[in-house]
Write a protein that binds this DNA or RNA. Structure first.
Lengths: 327, 327
DNA sequence: TTGTATGCGTTATCAG
DNA sequence: CTGATAACGCATACAA
């Protein structure tokens, strides 16, 4: 149904190769011929077949993105950022969700890798060896976890925790709980490490709780432990956990921030809408996705002049109503 | 780098076509040969090139999905549902976000259509003619808006409004505001029509407000109008608007549901987390995406035995704390 | 049941 | 600057 280059050539009265050349390197064809070809192409609504092109060039102009859960607001933003950037660079983006099941992840990535020039993988908990293995025969980059020498874009987790704890400390809190996320995830490791550093380098007394699954339900469960711990403030692994904590505290009639201050990490959209609004560490989620694309393209097209991809994104505490002076 | 069918043939000691046949129609090849081929393929990590296959078959085993905004929780779920279903049927899914800019939508769809066997389009506000035009040379289906004779999966908007209003009426409310969404969107038309029907068929007095952009900010703006209208309850076009309304009401010290009851539509995850939790009409968002894929496949592979795709999905009111008896 | 030959739509190479 | 021709990797007649 769609017109092919052959027909464009016929209509324009030139050869097939001239058509191809006109579209690929317009400057290597006579202006006059160029116009004829372009006109013919336009009138026929010609669009080169990416499949055919890919066969000879080896490039599909398509990237892949694999995340654990599309509905997790964190990854939603990563997808948005990656899609936007990919599109603007002329690439389509295949998106896949592993449903938190890292077993099918390898197969998924391999499958996508055959249709794409490279894939961006968000996989917080998959074993390092598995990823290194994968990276051996798929060109890929990682988001939010370093692994071997696979190119990675990360965020400054430690600084985020530091900012949050500095804030709480300034408000007079000394006994602070940390509600941990998925044990073994790089982010949780980093955040936990920063928590311990803070404890050693200041007069803070940190109480480590967890791990919890990084969803609202986990936070609900954590809240009671936090209360029992005698802490006057709590920092959670992410905002979803914080939302759960807030919800449970409200249920139990605990005043926030009067009796307990709460800080989350990620600054997802919902954070601004709770009662009270959640103080949270803003992390550049969309920028992570965008940077993932840049990093990947840097490998795919070293000649393209892309901005030197940042690989360690900065974070910034956003103070809202859920934190106040210590009781 | 990746092994080709030719090499598999060499290793297995058979011809190229036998390899191809073994994978496509295993029963038309001698069991013994089959094993040899499969073994060779496995040992080489052979994966057929989708591009090459697509060239001869005309199918890419890829679908496209275009939405206005990936970060809108409504579409996030549609994407999740579509991705899941596509994957389970052996298709990859290219996802694109128009950033609410329907001008680039046509080009985007066409571009994706060249790489996919069909595309699912969520486009609430694009003019009908534009879509009909597009559907003329792209095989596509629509989600959440009927248009000409393009296959569409919709939800039962009218029934949703009816359920919401029945609920409020049962609680004694008689004067109810409706905060409208994007004028001209099919969903808003339907919901508005249901609102008017309800007014004519009962003793309800409906106050139409709007239109508002279907985001939290719109709800914040709408809240003051709602208060001024003398209504005792408000139904919003969607949950995001309802969240905005709730937020503003809290700011102004209005008791919910004591002085004002609030009902949203969509039942997005955040609806359960507000204070008070939001009563909302659950709409099967993920199922919409899933059904979109089914509908598309029904056209692409009429022979495949798929469940007869439902094209009008049912909704169900979920009552939470934001609604109570009329003051 | 298996192998041979041809074509899918494009790019790339090379000769004109 | 342009045109003929050979790949690209696989599927599918058709022949054996």
């Amino acid at each position: 149904m769609p017109a092919g280059a052959r027909e464009v050539a016929r209509v324009a009265g030139v050869s097939l190769s001239t058509v191809s050349r006109t579209l690929a390197r317009p400057d290597q064809v006579a202006p006059e011929t160029r116009e004829k070809v372009l006109a013919a192409a336009r009138s026929l609504g010609y669009r080169p077949s990416p499949a055919a092109r890919g066969l000879t060039t080896g490039r599909t102009q398509t990237l892949g993105l694999v995340v654990p859960d599309l509905e997790n607001p964190y990854f939603t933003s990563v997808v948005k950022g990656a899609q936007r950037r990919a599109l603007s660079l002329g690439y389509a983006l295949i998106v896949a969700d592993t449903d938190e099941d890292s077993r099918q992840e390898v197969e998924l990535v391999r499958s996508i890798a055959t249709r794409a020039d490279g894939v961006i993988l968000c996989s917080p908990r998959t074993p390092e060896e598995v990823i290194v293995d994968l990276a051996a025969d798929c060109t890929m980059v990682l988001v939010n976890r370093p692994c071997g020498d696979v190119p990675t874009v990360t965020i400054d987790n430690r600084d985020g925790v530091r900012q949050a704890l500095d804030h709480l400390r300034a408000l007079g809190h000394r006994r602070i709980a940390y509600v941990g996320g998925p044990r073994g995830s790089w982010s949780d490791d980093e955040r936990l490490a920063a928590v311990r550093d803070a404890e050693h380098e200041s007069d803070l007394e940190m109480i480590e709780l967890g791990s919890f699954r990084p969803y609202v339900s986990g936070g609900v469960a954590a809240a009671d432990l936090v209360l029992a711990s005698g802490a006057t403030a709590v920092l959670t692994y992410n905002d979803l956990l914080a939302l759960g904590v807030l919800d449970r505290l409200r249920q139990r009639g605990v005043d926030v921030p009067g009796r307990m201050s709460v800080v989350g990490i990620d600054n997802i959209p919902a954070a601004a809408l709770t009662t009270p609004p959640l103080t949270s560490v803003e992390v550049p989620r969309a920028a992570s996705g965008s940077a993932g694309v840049d990093l990947l393209l840097q490998r795919l097209e070293p000649e393209r002049p892309v901005p030197p991809a940042e690989d360690r994104l900065a974070v910034q505490l956003v103070v809202r109503g859920s934190t106040g002076t210590a009781p």
